[in-house]
Nucleic acid binder design. Structure first.
Length: 565
RNA sequence: GCGGCUGUAGCUCAGUGGAUAGAGCAUCUGUCUUCGGAACAGAGGGUCGGGGGUUCGAAUCCCUCCAGCCGUACCA
């Protein structure tokens, strides 16, 4: 049975059959026809789908492309899902039949939120690792962008059939952890009246003093050592744990929930991933000792330079951890698809990690590292650098508090990850059409409200006949709903989540247009709820289906779909 | 220096091989005595950073130049 998810390949098949028929009839030379020529026309007046096959065939068939198009179109078999094709230039244009469009309302209601789910990822396991900020401080606004992108991507992959795991990589080992410990210990000692300056390369933020205070409340002077002694390791670890807890709370508030929090330190424990990976690299001759350090000779694998994996003081670098971590993802856990969402300041690391992943037996092509650019906060046209309250960098907590999680997530997703974005704090809280978040959520609330109003009058969608949905605005709204599976597919294949909010806006507009068209025409028989109960029930079915579709795309974005506002 | 990302309407940005390059906001003009006006319809507005190339067809691919941002650690 053809539905919105399969109609494009279905039309492709119709075209391919038509070419074969034309060849058999001697009207076309026997040429190799490329498949997958069906696309969405930019301008909907050209129909719902169009094939560019004739243009691609033009030269091989030795005839003008428009003639080829006409020949092919003539041989397209009649089909219940599409009207007979038309020719425009060399495009072969298809319009979905009213009946097929109407049937999608029934399918949507029958399948509910799953109506847009697809199967491209069926049977495959995917991991999305995102945020993974060092637990040396609170999350900032940029981490929020990574959180919104990673979480939405994970949801889209789930909708595309993948078994998805969301993961946070906790950097609880290494130099920055040590620096964090030293800073924390300095703040801690200060609480006991000692002259202990924060290290020059430490973390100057006031939150560190707060953290020290918290620990003092809990543990008193238990971590205090003699003057001049270094930070006790247990204090650093406790500090990290508390920071991780704080980060987790922030992400909870943002609506992001992980399947696993993966400790970097665990790579060095037990059947150590680190040892395994170093053994593998040594075995393959990719390790070299120079200047007292151990280097991964990545330049042999096409990298610009070699990189240190074990420092001259014997401690592994973060790069070594990352190699072991990706070995764990690909080899130990066997993911088919791995997505790392990183801030753009890590881009120098991308190629190295892919190369190393390949060197230890992982599939570098199945590793997709998604970089997102920085976020500039603004109020109107004024750039906001620091928090008024703390005088320090603005945290994700503050952003959520100020604009709400829905607006924050929607705006973060709206821009493609690769472009630097301005986040206008004033705009995000505006309750007007300037603000796309409210525009979309309002559409959902309005849909809910229509169903409520109908129910008060004893009308429900039950028993409505979708064949009665013949008005242009009705069919246009259904057509918009039918695009959701395509949007899911695009996001799952390209890892570009910005299509989700753009689609949500388009669907909301289609609904508002549908809803207003009835008002504008000054004809009460055109409203959803009319004197004609049969017609009302049919339209309520459409309202119900549109509500399901809008709620679904919002759900994938991690944005609430309110019943009233 | 080398490398990456970005450059599209006044602003913020979609569009990465197809038809006359789109959306939102802003501006202007209208609609409806509102099943929720947080609405709708329409108009104006473009050397797609510049130049060259590939292609039946280029904002999209290649080369080159320019501008902005980021990277180029025995930091992460």
């Amino acid at each position: 049975m053809v539905d919105a998810r399969s109609v494009r390949p279905h039309i492709d098949a119709l075209i391919e059959d038509a070419v074969r028929a034309a060849v058999a009839a001697g009207e076309l030379p026997d040429v190799a026809a490329p498949g997958a020529t069906v696309e969405r026309p930019k301008d909907s007046t050209n129909g719902d789908f169009a094939s560019t096959l004739a243009m691609r065939l033009g030269r091989a068939a030795m005839r003008p492309a428009p003639e080829i198009a006409a020949v092919i179109a003539r041989h397209v078999a009649s089909d219940p899902a599409v009207d007979p094709p038309t020719i425009s230039g060399a495009f072969i244009n298809f319009r979905l039949s009213d009946r097929f469009v109407q049937s999608e309302v029934e399918r949507c209601i029958a399948e509910g939120a799953a109506f847009a789910d697809i199967t491209v990822g069926a049977g495959k396991r995917a991991q999305v690792e995102f945020v993974s900020a060092n637990p040396t401080g609170p999350l900032h606004v940029g981490n929020g962008r990574g959180a919104a992108i990673g979480d939405a991507l994970a949801s889209a992959l789930q909708a595309a059939g993948y078994a998805v795991e969301r993961e946070y990589y906790v950097n609880d080992a290494g130099t920055q952890t040590d620096t964090f410990g030293e800073t924390l210990y300095a703040r801690y000692q200060q609480l006991f009246g000692r002259e202990a300056p924060v290290p020059a390369d430490g973390y100057p933020g006031q939150y560190m003093a707060g953290l020290a205070e918290e620990i003092k409340q809990e543990a008193g002077d238990r971590f205090l050592r003699d003057e001049g002694e270094p930070c006790p390791p247990a204090l650093a670890q406790l500090g990290i744990e508390l920071m991780v807890r704080h980060i987790r709370r922030t992400l909870d508030a943002f609506g992001v929930h992980y399947d696993r929090w993966f400790s970097e330190r665990s790579l060095y424990e037990g059947e150590s991933g680190f040892d395994t990976v170093m053994g593998l690299l040594r075995e393959k001759g990719y390790l070299a000792e120079r200047e007292g350090a151990t280097w991964f000779t990545s330049s042999d694998l096409g990298e610009g330079k070699d990189n240190v994996v074990i420092r001259s003081d014997g401690r592994p670098t973060y790069y070594a951890s990352d190699i072991a971590y990706h070995y764990d993802k690909f080899i130990r856990r066997g993911f088919d698809l791995v997505i790392d969402v990183w801030g753009a300041d890590h881009h120098g690391h991308v190629s190295r990690v892919k190369t190393a992943t390949g060197a230890v037996g992982g599939d570098g092509d199945a590793l997709h590292i998604l970089l997102y650019q920085l976020v500039t906060l603004k109020r109107g046209s004024e750039v906001v650098k620091l928090s008024k309250r703390s005088g320090e960098i603005i945290t994700l907590d503050e952003l959520i508090e100020e604009v709400g999680r829905d607006a924050a997530r929607f705006f973060f997703l709206l821009r493609s990850p690769g472009s630097q974005m301005d986040f206008d704090l004033d705009l995000a809280v505006k309750q007007s059409s300037e603000n796309p978040v409210f525009y979309v959520q309002y559409a959902h609330a309005r849909l809910a409200s229509i169903l409520d109003r109908a129910k008060e009058q004893g009308l429900t969608p039950d028993g409505g006949d979708v064949a009665l949905l013949t008005q242009p605005h009705e069919l246009a709204l259904i057509r918009e709903m039918m695009r959701l599976p395509e949007i899911i597919e695009t996001v799952a294949n390209t890892f570009e989540p910005q299509h989700l909010p753009h689609y949500a806006m388009a669907l909301a507009t289609a609904f508002h247009t549908f809803n207003d068209a009835f008002k504008q025409q000054d004809d009460s028989s055109l409203k959803v709820i009319t004197d004609n109960a049969e017609l009302s029930r049919a339209r309520l079915r459409l309202v119900l289906a549109a509500k399901i579709a809008l709620a679904r795309v919002l759900d994938v974005m991690g944005v609430d779909a309110p019943e009233r506002m």
